[in-house]
Amino acid sequence: MQITVNGRLYEVEPGTTLLGYLESRAIDVRKVAVALNEEIVPRKSLSEVCLKDGDVVEVIKVVAGG
């Protein structure tokens, strides 16, 4: 199945959790914010959310800014 992450399409195995996917991409979830279909998913809930075909995921990080 396919999901969109930050505007790009990615292939994932059915049954993958949000946490599992992010960890598979070597993302340190302590440093990011994650939204699923525009809803923010609290860090502690990432392991409870199973990805579905067509899901839109946003991964936001902190960058330098003024």
């Binding site: 992450v5 790009r8 990080k61 902190v62 330098a64 800014g65």
Partner: peptide
């Protein structure tokens, strides 16, 4: 100190960011 938030580029993960 101020910072901003932006989409992460999944193709170029960084080890150390401004927050670190």
């Amino acid at each position: 100190v101020t910072v901003a938030v932006r989409y992460m580029n999944l193709e170029e993960p960084e080890h150390e960011g401004v927050l670190d």
